[in-house]
Amino acid sequence: MSRAGRLPDALERGRAASNLADPVEVVIRASGVQKVYGRSSSEEGGVAALRGVDVVVASCEWTAIVGPSGCGKSTLLNVLAGIDAPTAGTVELLGNDLGRLDERARARLRLLRVGFVFQRFHLLPVLTAAENIELPMAEAGVARRDRRQRSRELLDFVGLGGRTDHRPPQLSGGEQQRVAIARAVANQPDVVFADEPTGELDSRTSAQILELFSSLNAHGTTLLTVTHDPEIARRARRVIEMSDGRIVSDGRPAR
């Protein structure tokens, strides 16, 4: 088993030097968020996934969103990350009111200050592990030499130093998820959103991923994780429990 390594110096340096990552006390502030799917945007005509959610996430927090399938946790994550637009309510991400940003500005915000980890990894199959990590850096304008070095450091960090040139189909599920985590933090984001990051993995691999998340959070990355995995919920500093599109409890996890 490869253990998560030390967070790359480049990442630390980047964080210290970046003026994009101004420390903010509140990373996410959402109020009265509703999301209705379907033709009609009213609750009567469509399917209400969120029914008035208020949530505030502070810097450096690791928050787990839990609840039964279909309770709206992934929808909430997407709305908070600016992937989905709420039907009603406001979302402020890193000091930016998402409702006031156009798609280009939201994309820029996600590129530079937000990281994503998906349940199914969503790596580009034609690019190597290193190239997948380099992709967001290349889009952010990081020089080729710097991004090469940083991708190598990140691969070392996630324990895949020897898999630089492997393409995703040549990697196991756990390895792909580790590459996805490395990609998520490539641009030293302030917050990482993870949707069921261990949902596709066995327990041993899940534990490795958890180690990585712990390490990231320990180095000051705010984490918001949607999960069914009780271990993630246990490791998080805060657990939001949802049911039927509403937050039913919000507090520290039971140890």
Binding site: A107, R108, R110, G115, H122, L135, P136, E139
Partner: peptide, 16 residues
Amino acid sequence: FGEIATLRAIGVAGHR
């Protein structure tokens, strides 16, 4: 389609 969605999610601009 999914790859394009991923690219958009991680912040790659539409024109790119």
